[in-house]
Amino acid sequence: MEIKLSAPITKEKLAALKAGDRVLLTGTVYTARDQAHKRICEALTRGEDAPFELEGAIIYYVGPSPAPPGRPIGSAGPTTSYRMDPYAPALLDLGQAAMIGKGPRNEEVKKAIVRNGAVYFAAIGGAAALISKSVKSAEVIAYDDLGAEAVRRLEVEDMPLIVAIDSRGCDLYERD
C-alpha cells in the first residue's frame, strides 16, 4: 500500500508517516550532496542565505548522471546519507522538512529529526534508472561548477520512497 504525498509537505502530513511506509512523492525537491552541503553551511555561517528556501524543503542526496538528449535528467538514485550527517542537524533546525538518501543516520541527525518533526526517506540505492523516470524537470540553481554535485531544483511525480526514520525517531535500520 503506497501513500501519496504532495510537496509542499506540512508537519501534519509528516507526523502521519511511520517508518516502513511506502510513499509516492510529488512536488519540488532540491538536490544537494557532499560539497553542496559544505557550501550551504559555510554560506549560512557567513550570514548569507541558502540557495533555496530551507523552510519546508525536501533535500535529495543525489548527484545525477548527465541528461541524455530528450530527457530531463540522467540516472538519479540516492547517495549514501551518513556523509551528510555533519550538516543535516543545522539544516533541519532551520526548517528543512525532509531528507531523501540511503543508509543509516547518526544519533545527532535522529535527534534533529524528532526535535523538528522531520522525516528521513530512503530511495532504493542503485535503482537509478527507475527513479529517474519520476523526475519531470531539473534545473541547476546553484554551484554549477560542482558538476554532478550542483544544487538542482527537481519536479518529481510519484517518486518511490520508503520512510526510513519517521518524525518520532522510529528507525527502519534498527529492527532488533
Binding site: P68, R71, A76, G77, L130
Partner: peptide
C-alpha cells in the same frame, strides 16, 4: 516480503536501464 519487493525493484531497474540505454546507477 519487503526485501523481495526491493529485489523486484532492482530487477525492474536493470530492465529499464537496458531498454532505455541509460546507466543502471547514477554513480557511474
Amino acid at each position: 516480503e519487503g526485501a523481495k519487493s526491493i529485489l523486484e525493484t532492482i530487477e525492474k531497474n536493470i530492465k529499464i536501464a537496458g531498454e532505455e540505454d541509460i546507466p543502471l546507477c547514477q554513480d557511474t
